[in-house]
Amino acid sequence: MGHLEPDHCHRCRERLAFEAFNQPNLIVCGNCGSAGAYFLFPAYYSATIEGQSALVRLEEQASCYFHPSNAATVACEGCGRFLCSVCDIEIGRSHICTYCLQAKKTQSTSAKLENERVLHDSVTFTLAAAVPFLFWPAAPFTAPYALYRAIRYYNAPTSIMGRSKWRLIVSMLLCVFQIIGTAVLIYFVVKAI
């Protein structure tokens, strides 16, 4: 399937009427009868009409640090370099360049830059609850390690959408019970021998 345009019917590729856009229901194409919902926003035509003209620098304008032929539109809030619309990276209300973005990513100070997170609470909960449930002889080994993880990662960030710490708390309790149980078992085994 070729590239589709959001203002064209997905089947017959006919351009849709203005009234077809941004409706909360499916609409039916008058040409081919296929149904679909189409949402179109000003960025669609802004990119075509204003995209090129905004780039070209006039004689009296400041130029971009990275592209001297382009007009500067904003200054980087990290290093102060002038940036054109190509180099400008907008994160929330701040504008930064690629170098500062890289630095920010390394320091990992912004939730808006993270692309991946390990869910330590889920890993710990699986170790503390699921593994001993499926294979109980593993409990003497998994319980101390799960307890270590629960303490180690108690303050570590969990899911970016926000999550409570109940998995870690339950894991800690389960680990303590498993360690006590293992100790009691060893005591009785040694006593029996």
């Binding site: 351009r15 849709l16 499916l26 039916v28 008058g30 040409n31 009868g33 075509t48």
Partner: peptide
């Protein structure tokens, strides 16, 4: 939108 669009637009039958 009409500035960037090419050709006449197809009518929509109705909304469902």
């Amino acid at each position: 939108l009409n500035l960037v669009a090419e050709g006449p637009a197809a009518n929509i039958l109705h909304r469902k």
